[in-house]
Design a binder for these strands. Structure first.
Length: 464
RNA sequence: UCCCCUGUAGCUCAAUUGGUAGAGCGAGCGGCUGUUAACCGCUAGGUUGCUGGUUCGAGUCCAGCCGGGGGAGCCA
């Protein structure tokens, strides 16, 4: 039996016979001899209204017992709606119950308002709500927009490894990957755990970044990007951190920090524009129910230029602002959240790309500027979220790179293949990391990052 | 990891100086209505997060543990 999706049905003209399959959102009975069923199947923001006349064979035995969450199939005809609120509806000629809700009294996703905190505890049922259905569709749309953007610009999508045996991917606590018996591991002569006996013959972890790997492909294919899961074992407990999240990391050869910043700006504008066009229904929902003004905000961002602001100038602006900060502003220290928020939310009221940070607060691979005090790093700050992108031009000069590795007391030997890139046909190149969930957060106005990923992983939180 | 707040019905929340548990929504039944946050009536539903302590008596006070939220740090 052929059937169509709710979004297709809503776009059709009255008069056509249709079969629909989905879940009951609500049921309202009219003693005039009919029931109204709002049916959703996840294909769009709006449910479709099914009108069930009382002469259906199973009207009293089944239709009137339908509750929120029941799965049904509906045969009927698409007709012009006699009521307000929708233009078309389905006049049912048959309704088949596919799956009942066992106990409507305790169904967790009942037809009432629920807090996001509560729905997080029933993450397997929350995609049935209009908010989480919308989040899922927007997540999908943004993913494809990212791929489309890079494809149009002739970037290649590179699958960097999830498991890494490099202990040199940069700062950040990592999750260990091991097949050793945790209760009784093999010991080395010093009494420590002997990782030579482990699966990979050495300590292995889940990746915290695909950057170092993707740089190798950048220095061969010119324009590449990764888009995959990333793992941080930090004990972070905030509305914008996850232990498992998805990160987009482009890397471009023969490019400097200015090219990098332009790429970041172009990319954000492209995906926002694409999203507003392709998911207008869901974006209207977020604009109305989650964050009033959201669409106007995004439109404004698409149309305005992102500000480029060197760190040193930002320090000046902050000092002269007259604003009282909890933490002092001093050249050489990292900016606090309150400082970043002030710049992007209060002072400039638009995305700000901060550049050229003091070298001592940034990673070893960032290119040293001519002043020998700063590096070609950048953070893209957006209102409401703060840092959404972090990136840099990479140090392509082997002697400078080695000096930085030594200064930071890092094990040079372990970077042998990374250093090789600087020995064989080295080129200026740059890239950045975009936290995908932060992008979804910003695009939807959702306040907590745990509500924009299907099954959030965070400290003490890996249910489902 | 640190600071602050918090945990009572399926959900959202009340409960006076410590005195023995209540409402709305949801659910069930009935009424009314081309309904759509429907409306009206009735009914059911609780070991007040867990463990211990103070007290004649603890949802309320104290300690520890567990969970949730907001902020900070780490970052994306």
């Amino acid at each position: 039996m052929s059937w169509i999706r709710v979004d297709q049905a809503l776009a059709k003209s009255p008069g056509e016979p249709v079969t629909l399959k989905g879940w009951v959102r609500t049921r309202r009975d009219s003693k005039a001899g009919l029931s109204f069923i709002n049916l959703h199947d996840g294909t769009c923001q709006d449910p479709i209204q099914v009108v069930a006349p009382s002469d259906l064979a199973n009207y009293e035995s089944e239709v009137q017992k339908l509750t929120t969450g029941c799965a049904i199939e509906v045969d009927g005809e698409l007709v012009e709606s006699k009521g307000k609120g929708q233009s078309v509806e389905v006049k049912a000629s048959a309704i088949r119950v596919v799956g009942w809700v066992e106990d409507p009294d305790t169904y967790p996703a009942s037809a009432k308002r629920h807090t996001f905190e509560y729905l997080r505890e029933v993450a397997h049922l929350r995609p049935r709500t209009n908010t989480f259905g919308a989040v899922a569709r927007v997540r999908h749309a943004l993913s494809l927009a990212v791929h489309r953007f890079f494809d149009e610009r002739e970037f290649y999508y590179v699958h960097t490894p999830i498991i890494t045996a490099n202990d040199c991917e940069g700062a950040g606590q990592m999750f260990r990957v091991s097949t050793l018996d945790a209760m009784n591991p093999p010991r080395n002569e010093a009494g420590g755990v002997d990782f030579n006996e482990d699966f990979f013959g050495k300590e292995a972890h889940l990746t915290v970044s695909g950057q170092l790997s993707v740089e190798t492909y950048c220095c061969a294919l010119s324009r590449v990007y990764t888009f995959g899961p990333t793992f941080r074992a930090e004990n972070s407990n905030t509305s914008r951190h996850l232990s498992e999240f998805w990160m987009i990391e482009p890397e471009i050869a023969f490019a400097d920090l200015a090219d990098n910043a332009q790429l970041a700006e172009d990319m954000l504008k492209f995906v926002f524009k694409d999203l507003l066009e392709r998911r207008a229904d869901d974006m209207a929902f977020f604009d109305k129910r989650i964050q009033p003004g959201l669409i106007e905000n995004l439109t404004h961002i698409i149309e305005s230029d992102f500000l480029r602001l060197p760190y040193t100038e930002a320090i000046d602006v902050l000092k002269k602002s007259g604003k009282k900060f909890e933490f002092p502003v001093e050249w050489g220290t990292d900016l606090q959240s309150e400082h970043e928020r002030f710049l992007t939310e209060e002072h400039y009221k638009r995305p700000v790309i901060l550049t050229d940070y003091p070298k001592d607060i940034k990673a070893f691979y960032m290119r040293l500027n001519d002043d020998e005090k700063t590096v070609a790093a950048m953070d893209v700050l957006v209102p409401g979220i703060g840092e959404i992108i972090g990136g840099s031009q990479r140090e392509e000069r082997l002697d400078v790179l080695d000096r930085r590795i030594d200064e930071m007391g890092l094990p040079k030997d372990e970077y042998w293949w990374y250093r090789d890139l600087r020995r064989y046909g080295t080129v200026p190149h740059a890239g950045f990391g975009l936290g995908f969930e932060r992008l979804v957060q910003f695009s939807t106005g959702m306040g907590n990052i745990r509500d924009v990923i299907p099954f959030p992983r965070a400290p003490k939180q890996a249910e489902f």
